[in-house]
């Protein structure tokens, strides 16, 4: 019997990965220092499986590594040209679906969408840009919401519901009209129960939910994904815990 058929391990691209029962493939991989691209996963929140970046092939079948349980002896294909090509297409879909303009975005360098695109060498969004008209909500004293950059990962929805216990955000609409709505009588962020300390404020993987008055406090070039590509920051991805307080915000407060 090979090592990978051990009762407490499986393999990713031929590499042996130990796991503890109850771990998903993605959790076990990250704990073992193996990178699987992902956007809608966060270690503090329940698996969701919507971005589909982490799709791997498990014993010949496609599945989301973030929702599929690790099982003894399974063989997982992850870092292959076929899967990475598909992932690049998914990123291109996300880029054309919203309005993602990195040069003017304070999240640049800390943005997971951008970091994934760099890592998978996405040079252009390829498809026809939708240039959707989406709202920006600046009514909250400490936080602003720019839905142009939203990728519908529902991390804010889940963090607000499951960690903050507030249900400030919800995904509304259907299909391409899906959009985040704010829970307040007016639908405005300023009238909601959101506070700057909420996990929901700090969990956005892109620049859709941003803390006010911290613009460019950390210079471009010194940000999370500037030094090393995201694929070489597995420890960070596995261990980050909410709140991911922006450096400048800690200084200010």
């Amino acid at each position: 019997m090979s090592e990978t058929s051990n009762a407490n391990s499986f393999s990713i691209d031929g590499q042996r990965i130990p796991f503890t029962p109850g771990q998903t493939i993605l959790q076990a991989a990250l704990a073992a220092g193996v990178y699987i691209p992902h956007l809608c996963h966060h270690p503090d929140l329940k698996p969701h499986g919507s971005c589909k970046l982490c799709t791997v092939i498990v014993n010949g079948r496609n599945g989301s590594a973030c929702t599929q349980m690790a099982m003894p002896g399974i063989e997982v294909e992850n870092n292959s040209p076929t899967l990475n090509d598909r992932r690049r297409v998914l990123l291109q879909m996300l880029f054309v679906e919203g309005n993602h303009f990195c040069p003017g975005c304070e999240k640049s360098g800390n943005c997971q969408l951008q970091a994934l695109a760099y890592d998978l060498e996405m040079l252009a969004p390829h498809f026809r840009h939708a240039y959707p008209v989406r709202p920006i909500d600046t009514t909250h004293p400490d936080v602003w919401l720019d839905l142009n950059r939203c990728i519908m990962c529902e991390l804010c929805v889940r963090a607000s519901r499951d960690i903050d216990g507030k249900n400030v955000f919800a995904l509304a609409g259907r299909g391409v009209d899906s959009h985040i709505v704010v829970n307040s009588p007016s639908g405005r962020l300023g009238d909601s129960a959101l506070s700057i300390d909420d996990a929901a404020v700090h969990v956005c993987p892109v620049g859709a939910i941003m803390v006010k008055r911290v613009g460019y406090a950390v210079p471009i070039g010194e940000r999370q994904f500037d030094e090393q590509p995201i694929s070489r920051q597995v420890d960070y991805l596995a261990a980050r815990h909410i709140p991911i307080v922006p450096v400048a915000a800690t200084e200010e407060r």
């Binding site: 499986g49 996300l94 299909g175 899906s178």
Partner: peptide, 9 residues
């Protein structure tokens, strides 16, 4: 339904 990226877009 718009839940997952490949189908929504």
């Amino acid at each position: 339904c718009g839940f997952c990226t490949p189908c929504r877009v």
